[in-house]
Design a protein around this nucleic acid. Structure first.
Lengths: 200, 200
DNA sequence: CCTACCGATCGGTAGG
DNA sequence: CCTACCGATCGGTAGG
């Protein structure tokens, strides 16, 4: 009996995850407002009303998708930079990893950032907390570089412009295009860092 | 009679413009899908069905707003750089002007770029033509700088990353914030250009 | 440009 | 998680 209950619970959690992933994909592709809960239900083979068994509302689905996306991006980033002591090498790794999360993921949840406008104001607090954790990882490395005189501008402004360069790629990057993610990452790093006389 | 007709026509054009400006403002603030044609009609003091006297459909309104926005940005840019022969000074002026169009305008039509997803595919061609004209102005100056060895990266990739830095500002810039548009423009230019030994 | 209106769709619920 | 359904809203139209 308790085994059956456990199996049911994990089945239910799986269905919830399916819903969450499909919602993320559709929200990113068509936008939150243009995606109907019926679209999502259809895509995972459910009936029109069934998503509301797993999520209280469509907004709840968006909120859950955004938080899951940011947190998974944060974990990828932390794993990638673990043990890299040199701040410049660390920054380069972070840039390349961030681009990967954004543009190579099968479920690019980070792009839900564009949909935060659709969130109720009370949900904004949670989202802000999650993105703050992500950005603090960057800020720490940028502060370290700035202290060493390795940055071309103030650390905070640099972070904002750097995020712009990288996040904007979702508007134009194509996997079969002329610019690879490695190339983009290198150029972005070049722009942010001062030239080092030793390299090239 | 012909005077009356002319007056009517210009009155009608004025109402159309009002509609267009209000639609732009609301689309930027709430997004295309979340803005109803009733919202727009209300905001200019019309009845729910009246916008459709001026525009065939809601999508038509978006298309017209986007083209008007891009073209007015292009004109501002052309006026600003007229007669600037030095490519570096020209680029700096373009950067500052672009930020102004984006963030200081009372009707920031350029931000409608985010809503192009909502356009029908046949409208995309016209929009692409308009944005291409805008970007060619940038590309020409960047090519000139690249030929003089003044750029830190290839001209095309530089343009894409530069647009990212600038356009992303709409996500975080606040008029009362610590960073002024002048400061942001200077830093963006610094990142893109090689250091000149003569300056500072 | 208003009045009056329609067909379709959508988020969400009740009850099992 | 399905069935059956509701209330509200929305883009758009007819007719003046």
């Amino acid at each position: 009996m308790s085994r059956r209950k456990k199996a049911d619970a994990s089945l239910e959690a799986n269905r919830r995850d399916e819903l969450l992933q499909m919602a993320t994909r559709l929200f990113v592709a068509k936008g939150f407002e243009a995606t109907t809960t019926r679209d999502i239900a259809d895509a995972v083979g459910m009936c029109p009303g069934s998503p509301f068994y797993h999520f209280r509302s469509k907004h709840d689905l968006l909120k859950a998708a955004m938080i899951a996306g940011i947190d998974s991006g944060l974990q990828r980033l932390q794993t990638a930079v673990a043990g890299i002591a040199d701040p410049e090498r660390r920054l380069r790794t972070m840039i390349r990893t961030h681009l990967g999360t954004l543009l190579e993921s099968e479920c690019p949840a980070s792009l839900l950032f564009y949909e935060s406008r659709s969130l109720a104001s009370d949900a904004h607090a949670e989202i802000t907390a999650a993105t703050d954790r992500y950005q603090q990882l960057w800020q720490a490395t940028l502060d370290e570089l700035a202290a060493g005189g390795r940055l071309r501008g103030p650390a905070k402004a640099t972070r904002l412009l750097l995020f712009g360069m990288l996040n904007w790629c979702s508007q134009w990057y194509r996997p079969d295009g002329a610019l690879s993610l490695d190339t983009i990452a290198d150029l972005a790093a070049t722009m942010v860092l001062v030239d080092s006389a030793m390299e090239e």
